[in-house]
């Protein structure tokens, strides 16, 4: 499965490089439709496993520890990386707080500096690609909850079908909750951190 995922993404990127720009507008509609269809399937998977909601209820608010850890991990990881490549802490932490949502994080930083906005864009694109590729591998070799971590904010949409396929309905719900929490925090954390 993970091999076919890598092949699809790489094939898509190569095709994209060769295609004229105007096709971009059509991909929006296809992605929206495809995503809705896949989320519907994820829903069916969850619905067929009736015990799941009880399991999540038992976990309770502790489930929020997962997005909290992803926030700390993503931001401190990017700060450490920034230290090596000579970025000030406010800039590197703001890029890390994009949590993979590249369009929004780049937009939020565009007023601050075009260069940093470009970095936020590209590093969060890379994060999404790495997430797509490594979610199945992490789920298999490290652990199922851990596979939610690379997805970051995309755990509620684009990465959710991959997490759902690689793990189980319980983790899918945790991933959705995590994605919602992280996505809501991107527009708050990025402006806050850049103004440190």
């Amino acid at each position: 499965m993970s091999l076919s995922i890598i092949v699809s993404v790489v094939l898509g990127i190569t095709m994209g490089l060769l295609m004229p720009e105007y096709i971009f507008n059509y991909t929006d509609i296809i992605i929206d439709f495809g995503l809705c269809l896949l989320l519907f399937f994820v829903g069916i998977d969850i619905g067929r496993n009736k015990g799941v909601f009880n399991d999540i209820k038992k976990i309770g608010l502790k489930v929020l520890l997962i997005p909290i850890m992803i926030i700390i991990g993503s931001i401190s990881g990017s700060v450490i990386a920034g230290f090596f490549v000579g970025l000030p802490v406010n800039e590197s932490s703001a890029v890390g707080a994009g949590f993979g949502w590249y369009s929004l994080s780049a937009m939020l930083l565009s007023e601050y500096s075009t260069e940093l906005s470009a970095l936020a864009f590209i590093s969060n694109v890379v994060r999404e690609i790495l997430a797509i590729i490594f979610i199945p591998i992490i789920a298999k070799y490290i652990g199922d909850v851990e596979s939610v971590a690379p997805a970051g904010a995309t755990a509620m949409d684009t990465s959710l079908p991959i997490i759902s396929k690689a793990t189980n309905p319980e983790i899918s719900i945790i991933a959705f909750i995590t994605g919602v929490v992280l996505s809501s925090l991107v527009p708050i954390l990025v402006p806050m951190l850049i103004n440190l």
Binding site: S4, V9, I13, M15, M19, T27, I31
Partner: peptide, 13 residues
């Protein structure tokens, strides 16, 4: 796989 392919196109384009 199709969605990922289209997402790849978006990134590459």
């Amino acid at each position: 796989l199709f969605l990922l392919f289209i997402m790849g196109i978006r990134i590459g384009i």
